[in-house]
């Protein structure tokens, strides 16, 4: 109840190929997140799964049944949009109930499900208000509520938090995580915020240029990125890439080291460099340094450290945490 398979799904808008053959397996109850840079086709893929857009070729199976010819309302999905997309002329209650009403659900049942969903999202006080009379966060919760009452096999979220401010984003993120635990439903979630991706996902799908770069759990992607793109995309600040030739190594084309996998010292170390800039974040200190050997490096130190710009320091990578990539950008394991 709630699995999804994509088989070589392609999509072109005229001459532009947006998706170039997507294969994916989502198991029942999984929380899958699509990440990737802007314009890589995340929303398009989600809309194809929802049936709002036809794939140019390929198959989409929900619960093992081919749904390419099934209209969106009959696919057993529910979608939450970035812009909330609430019906402006309907009350919160009617916004949530419209889908069920269209499907001919008995009134009592609509009432009951609306009540349950609004309790889950603490929306009881606002049931009779119009969307215009709600704050952004409340609107987003109504949009989520509208998805919940449909009791779908598959939840689709398209950047649901990107219009919220930072504090609200954290709250709503926790709420979505809780909903996933309570409903045990399959969720597919698009974002380009990697914190959301790392914290929510059972499985992350990294998309770029219309193809899947890597699929895996957050820690797999962090510890074993399959290529340069994934290595640079996952993790913040981004991984340092160093031309292997400059280090005199011949076993790789590019060497990668995460900022948090380096140590700094004033006395001695592997790479000598000048500090360009220091950012004090309280829990972390981020040091940007310029080294003759490696070029610009970012180091992330835990806790407070009193480095200053123009100081000479030595950076040393933790052994065993170097990533090696060949000339095609693929990881050498």
């Amino acid at each position: 109840m709630g699995s999804l398979q994509l088989k070589s799904v392609r999509k072109s808008f005229g001459p532009v190929d947006v998706l170039k053959g997507i294969d994916l397996d989502v198991k029942d109850g999984e929380f899958v997140i699509f990440v990737g840079p802007s314009g890589c086709g995340k929303s398009t893929l989600l809309r194809i799964i929802a049936g709002l857009e036809d794939a140019t070729s390929g198959n989409i199976l929900i619960d093992g049944a081919e749904v390419s010819a099934v209209p969106p309302a009959k696919r057993g999905i529910a979608m939450v949009f970035q812009s909330y997309a609430l019906y402006p002329h309907l009350s919160v209650k009617d916004n949530m109930g419209l889908g069920l009403k269209q499907a001919g659900t008995p009134k009592a049942q609509i009432e009951e499900r609306t009540k349950k969903a609004s309790a889950m999202l603490s929306l009881e006080k606002y049931l009779d208000r119009r969307p215009a009379e709600l704050s952004g966060g409340q609107r987003q919760r109504v949009a989520i509520g509208r998805a919940i009452v449909r009791e779908p096999k598959l939840f689709l979220f398209d950047e649901p938090l990107s219009n919220l401010d930072a504090a609200l984003r954290v709250n709503t993120r926790l709420e979505i995580a809780r909903l996933h635990r309570e409903l045990k439903a399959t969720m597919i979630y698009v974002t380009h915020d990697q914190v959301e991706a790392m914290t929510l996902a059972d499985k992350i799908v990294v998309l770029d240029g219309g193809v899947i770069q890597q699929v895996g759990s957050p820690m797999e992607l962090y510890n074993r990125p399959a290529n340069l793109f994934v290595a640079g995309f996952i993790g913040s600040p981004a991984m340092n890439f160093i031309d292997a030739a400059r280090l005199g190594r011949s076993d790789a084309a590019t060497i990668g080291i995460r900022p948090e996998h380096m140590s700094l010292s004033r006395e001695a170390g592997e790479w000598r460099g000048t500090i360009v800039h220091v950012e004090h974040l309280g829990a972390d200190t981020i040091v940007y340094l310029d080294s003759e050997k490696t070029g610009l490096l970012t180091a992330r130190l835990f806790g407070e450290h009193h480095y200053e710009a123009d100081e000479i320091v030595y950076a040393t990578p933790n052994s065993g945490q170097l990533h090696r990539f060949n000339a095609n950008g693929e990881a050498i394991l």
């Binding site: 809309r47 929802a50 709002l52 949009f81 997309a85 609430l86 019906y87 419209l98 889908g99």
Partner: peptide, 14 residues
């Protein structure tokens, strides 16, 4: 008129 709104309607079976 927002596309998302129309799409939300489609998903709700309008």
């Amino acid at each position: 008129v927002s596309d998302d709104l129309k799409n939300a309607g489609r998903i709700d079976g309008l």
